[in-house]
Design a protein around this nucleic acid. Structure first.
Lengths: 182, 182
DNA sequence: GTAGCTGTACCGTCCGGACGGTACAGCCAT
DNA sequence: ATGGCTGTACCGTCCGGACGGTACAGCTAC
């Protein structure tokens, strides 16, 4: 059993992803984490502090994910795209945390901080991609494709058509090779 | 001055995009539309009916947008990507409505209907792209890039780096040509 | 005279947050 | 070794406020 604090963050993420901000009330989070409301507020003194805890986890996992990208034997591109596809979670759980944070990236004060944190994650990811794909246009393109896969996860829609991510990765790899040759 | 009904939907969209679902209260929507709360409830009998009105507008604008894609002299790909970039609204206002709908695509009952409507829009857009890009992998890739741009708009982040959408469209066009030749 | 609103007053519910209280583990001086 | 103190972890309850929604009495342009 993970610590209560981690269980609270897990439950917060789950509720944000599955029900949106409206469903992620303190009561609901506490119930899902099998913690009393008082216990939740012991760890996170307010809803804003809870969101800040999520952002902290996001930053930690982003740093860990970048390490995985650089170290992956299949390359950063394949790692990035494959961990962006719905259902396939990244080894450090970044995908889930990222999607949860997206749900609270609204116009509020915490939303502002959230958007900044998400922008940092994006920038770090792009930088990691550029070590494999130096061309700025191509690396950006790869990242946008991954982001598009994220968006599909956000809407909960299954992948369009019958084309898999593997085919996408393969095609992109061809492009990268032909570009580096040209 | 547009009709009160349209102004209400405009205000609803604006509040959803700029402040998220939490900011789009009936009171706030009525105030932003310069309509009394009673007047809002005259047109939309409940918050759910208001959301349904947004989805209806989404479907109408999606159909109109597909027409623009097919008719655009620059091609469907360029039209799709350029109307996906933050700031550049599509001529029929689909981008704004799409982003607003994304904000209410949560786990609720209306969220379910919203996700279905968004999936329909995506499917129609992909079908339109395929008239210009028959290759299923490539057309999907183009759509994912556009979706990635959408996501950037959602987080409110400026475009990463100093590479413009024009460069992206140009590069994609090269890929499409080289593929059709090969 | 009626469709299309405005404006106000109000209700029930739910949520965030504050608060007081409980259980218990560890530690340390005597 | 034990009594007392401290900090950690958590529980249960209550309150103020906001939100969705209802009801209704007007006004006014066509």
């Amino acid at each position: 059993m993970p610590s209560a604090r981690d269980r609270v963050l897990d439950a917060y993420e789950t509720l944000l992803v599955e029900q949106g901000p409206a469903g992620a009330t303190l009561d609901a989070v506490a119930a899902a984490a099998e913690v009393s409301k008082g216990g939740l507020l012991y760890h996170f003194g307010s809803k804003e502090a809870l969101a800040e805890g999520l952002l902290q986890r996001l930053r930690e996992r982003s740093a860990a994910d970048v390490e995985h990208m650089r170290a992956d034997p299949g390359g950063a591109v394949a790692y990035y795209l494959q961990t962006s596809v719905p259902g396939a979670a990244s080894p450090v759980g970044l995908t889930r945390t990222y999607l949860a944070a997206l749900r609270i990236a609204d116009g509020s004060a915490t939303g502002e901080a959230t958007r900044r944190a998400l922008a940092d994650v994006d920038a770090q990811g792009l930088a990691a991609l550029r070590t494999e794909v130096p061309d700025p246009v191509l690396s950006w393109l790869v990242q946008l494709v991954g982001d598009g896969l994220y968006l599909r996860t956000l809407t909960g829609a299954p992948l369009t058509g019958d084309v898999g991510v593997d085919a996408l990765v393969a095609r992109l790899r061809e492009m990268l090779i032909s570009t580096s040759r040209g």
